[in-house]
Structures are given as structure tokens and as C-alpha cells.
Design a protein around this nucleic acid. Structure first.
Length: 479
DNA sequence: TGAAATGTTGGGGCG
DNA sequence: ACGCCCCAACATTTC
């Protein structure tokens, strides 16, 4: 009789899970294991909002494993020690897992794999998280890509469609006497209940992820290319947290879109697949350039004169009290739901890094802690893109004007009215710039500037020029 | 996956 | 009728 461990990490699903399938097919007994590593000393240990999601996702996974057989085994501590202990106690011959690509995870997994192989234990790992792994796409000379468009072309040339694996029909039984902690004992949920809004905003788990995808395919997808830019409407898939935790795989997403559309994958569908490719590009970049977690890809930016003593400004930004309605709406949406519309992420990030000249790491930190879809690769790429110091980044002079962006992408102010209720009675004409409204109009709209809602925390014109000067110096400096 | 400054054009008011 | 100027509206350039 053989026993295997399937070590779940960020592949919290049963379908299209090659490691799980291999374990179930090849062993008589299978131990489905999740190990929580609550190491607060690690710089990028899981953030608060993600912990909430993880809690819900583990519960969903546990319940779906129970419905086909055994149940999820939960442990807390050092993965190598725990895997060793379980392997020794239960006579395990082989360990299966799906690969992860963040630098620390690669190092950890490489170490564990070697330790097991040296100890005579079989380890087999799989790709479940990506259409193509970071080393499967490269430039003709073998180097990694640094620019998205050629990466995207290369990926299309290889073929976007990748066959997903089915879920195992049954779950192999657990060996007797496997000890498990409870999910609650991991204490993933916040002590202070700031998470009420999360429950209203999300259904977590594999089934919910698939339902979300179907819903998106049947509604917003048809107008994705333009619809995705309007934060007041449901124009995006909102699959990011599901994808991050592996409740659904990009293979499943792409397959559903390419397979079932009567009208084929047109412009809108393709522009969505492009976003899936951006996700892969982020992993590609972080895998090949791991130092970009905290230092700029473009080395010239090490010399950028970020401001110091920005603590108060950073707090205003975090709390959604910048005085720019579109940004405050975004920051409050983030705090309330653990998610922010991508268009608004860019506007908020532009204000922080360019107008306020606050180091992009500060924004990356805040997003890391508050986003349910916080992903090291995407977060790093996104912030470096905005700050202009990334591989294929926005040029330094591309500075968003939050008023114009608001007027363009939330013309009726629906998004602002939802998240900045103190402005909700203002007309669309002034909702993006309440300080320009007359005293009487403000009074009619029940807004007392500075009391109910702040004036802009910074002069856009001046701060724009300050940023252009600061970034311009970088541009002209030698490589 | 910008915005502002600058340049060009053409219709209309006016002497 | 004609030229001149003004200034939207649009295009191009610059950061």
C-alpha cells in the first residue's frame, strides 16, 4: 500500500490540479495538506486582507474535499519539518505539489525537494498556476523578456489554449490517525472586525470562482475593452483573488473563453486574455529578476530624490482623504472590500509616486496588506510600472490628472457617490472638483469643505512640475 | 493603460 | 468684396 502527500499552497481547488490528480491516481492513501507559515519576520508574509481570503478559501477547500472523501489536513509551522514528520509517521513514499514562483518560495521548495530526494522520498511538482512557466517563454537568444508586447506575441505564437485536467472522481482515503489543526486555530481572521464589507463583496472558493467566470463571460466580457475602464460599472472579471489563490486556473479561464463562445474570441475577449498574459508576464519578470521586489528594475531610479518625512501625507492617501474624489473613492473601496478597480489603482498610484513623490514601496506595502488579490509578482510589476522604474514601464512623464481621469471614466460620478457618500448630492459637474463649486451649491449639496471633505492635499500643477524635474534628472543620467 | 503646451486651420465678425 | 483678427477645434510636440 502506498501513501502520498498532496501539499496545497496557492492551488486551492480540486479541478485542473495536476499534483492532486497525480497523488490520487498513484497512491492508495492521500494526505491533502495545507501548511500555514505564520512567519512575521518575513518581509512579504501574507497580508491582512489576504489572510481573510485564505481563511474562507481553506474552508471551501476543506468542505469540497470532505464531499468527495477525506478532508483537509491543516498544520502550522516550518514546511520541511512538518512534511518530514508526517512522512515519517505515516509511511509516505511520495510528495506532490504545484509550483510557485516567488523568489523565497522557489528557494524553499528547491531546498525541500533536495532534502527529500536525498532522504529517498519521491517528489514530483507540476504547473497549475500559469499557461506557461517563466522559463518556457524566452527571447530568441534565450534571455527573458523585459517588454510586454513581444512577450504577448510569443505567448500567442505558442498558443493560448492549454488543456485543463479534470477533478479526481474520488479522493483516496486518509491513513488512520492523521492529526490536523483547525482552520480557526490559524487565527487568520482579524481581531478587530474591519472585514464586514468583505463578506458582502465576495464569495470565496473554487465553485464561486467558476461561477464568477461564467457570469463575466455572459455579461461584461462582450464590452470588456472599454467597459473595464469604468469603475462605477461592473466591467471587469474580478477574478484576481481567485486566480491568486488558485481557486481557478488560467487554463480554465482561457479554455472557457476560447471554447464556448459562439462568436469566437473577438476584440473584447482578446483584450481580456491580454490581461491574463500580463499576470504571466509579472511572474516571468519576478522569476528572472527577483531583486525587483524592492529595488528598481531600471537602476537609474536608485538615485531618485523621493521625499522624506512623508508620513502624514502617506496616511492621508491611505485613508482616502487626499481631496481628489476619484482617488479617495478607490482607497475607500480598497479598505471596505479588499479590492480596487484597476483604473483607480493606477490613478491613486500615480498621485503617490509622482505628485507626492513618496517611494513606490510604500504604496506596494499598503496594497500588499489591504488587497485580497495581493500578489507579489503583480504588485511589484504594477508599482514599478507606475513609478516608471520597471521593465516595460509607463514613461516618467505620464502623470495622471485625477480630475480629468475622474471626469473621463466616471462621468456621472456613480463610483464616487458610492464610496465617498459625503459628496453624493453634488452634481456630476462638480463631483470631481468640489472645491470649484460655489458656496451656495455646496450648501445645497450638504457639503462643508474641510469639515465634511478635504480640499486637495496638493497642487496638481506644481507637484506635476516638481515630479517632471525630479524624474527628468533620472532620464538624463547615465545607465 | 496622459496631460499640457504649442502649432495649425478655417469659419465668422468686423472695419 | 476683401483682409485682418479672433478663437474654437483639431493636430503635433514636449515633458
Amino acid at each position: 500500500m502506498t501513501t502520498a502527500i498532496i501539499w496545497f499552497r496557492r492551488d486551492l481547488r480540486l479541478s485542473d490540479n495536476p499534483a492532486l490528480l497525480a497523488a490520487v491516481e498513484r497512491a492508495d492513501f492521500v494526505i491533502p495538506l495545507y501548511i500555514h507559515q505564520s512567519r512575521l519576520d518575513q518581509p512579504w508574509s501574507i497580508g491582512s486582507a489576504s489572510r481573510w481570503w485564505l481563511h474562507q478559501s481553506l474552508r471551501a477547500l476543506d468542505s469540497s474535499i470532505r464531499s468527495v472523501g477525506s478532508g483537509l489536513v491543516i498544520r502550522q509551522g516550518e514546511p520541511l519539518e512538518i512534511l518530514r514528520e508526517i512522512a515519517a509517521t505515516h509511511g509516505v513514499q511520495s510528495v506532490y505539489w504545484n509550483r510557485l514562483y516567488d523568489p523565497d518560495e522557489v528557494a524553499r521548495d528547491t531546498h525541500i525537494k533536495k532534502a527529500f530526494k536525498d532522504g529517498g522520498l519521491a517528489v514530483e511538482t507540476f504547473n497549475s498556476a500559469l499557461l506557461y512557466e517563466p522559463w518556457e517563454i524566452s527571447r530568441s537568444g534565450g534571455e527573458p523578456y523585459r517588454v510586454f508586447t513581444p512577450f504577448w506575441k510569443a505567448m500567442q505564437a505558442l498558443g493560448l489554449k492549454r488543456a485543463p485536467e479534470p477533478a479526481p472522481a474520488t479522493m483516496s482515503p486518509l491513513p488512520d490517525g492523521v492529526r490536523s489543526d483547525s482552520i480557526d486555530s490559524l487565527e487568520l481572521l482579524p481581531r478587530i472586525p474591519w472585514d464586514q464589507g468583505f463578506y458582502e463583496s465576495w464569495s470565496v472558493g473554487e465553485a464561486a470562482a467558476y461561477a464568477r467566470l461564467s457570469e463575466f463571460r455572459n455579461t461584461a466580457l462582450a464590452h470588456y475593452k472599454t467597459g473595464r475602464d469604468f469603475p462605477g460599472h461592473v466591467g471587469t472579471s474580478r477574478l484576481s483573488p481567485h486566480l491568486h489563490f488558485g481557486e481557478i486556473s488560467p487554463r480554465q479561464v482561457v479554455n472557457l473563453l476560447l471554447h464556448d463562445l459562439d462568436f469566437g474570441c473577438g476584440t473584447d475577449c482578446l483584450s481580456y486574455l491580454r490581461e491574463i498574459a500580463w499576470r504571466e508576464f509579472a511572474v516571468h519578470l519576478l522569476f528572472h529578476f527577483p531583486h525587483t521586489i524592492d529595488s528598481p528594475m531600471d537602476a537609474r531610479f536608485k538615485g531618485l530624490p523621493w521625499r522624506k518625512d512623508y508620513e502624514n501625507d502617506l496616511k492621508q492617501w491611505q485613508r482616502g482623504l487626499t481631496g481628489f474624489p476619484i482617488i479617495d473613492a478607490g482607497m475607500r473601496e480598497l479598505w471596505h472590500t479588499g479590492w480596487m478597480h484597476n483604473r483607480v489603482r493606477m490613478i491613486a498610484a500615480s498621485l503617490l509616486t509622482k505628485n507626492l513623490l513618496i517611494p513606490w514601496h510604500e504604496g506596494a506595502r499598503w496594497f500588499w496588506d489591504t488587497l485580497v488579490d495581493a500578489d507579489l509578482a503583480s504588485n511589484t510589476m504594477g508599482w514599478q510600472w507606475t513609478a516608471g522604474c520597471g521593465a516595460d514601464a509607463a514613461p516618467y512623464f505620464r502623470i495622471f490628472n485625477p480630475i480629468l481621469q475622474g471626469e473621463r471614466f466616471d462621468p456621472q460620478g456613480e463610483y464616487i457617490r458610492r464610496w465617498v457618500p459625503e459628496l453624493s448630492a453634488l452634481s456630476s459637474r462638480f463631483i470631481h472638483k468640489p472645491w470649484e463649486a460655489s458656496e451656495s451649491l455646496l450648501a445645497d449639496s450638504d457639503v462643508k469643505l474641510e469639515k465634511d471633505y478635504p480640499r486637495p492635499m496638493i497642487d496638481l500643477k506644481e507637484s506635476r512640475e516638481r515630479a517632471l524635474t525630479a524624474f527628468g534628472v533620472i532620464k538624463s543620467s547615465a545607465l
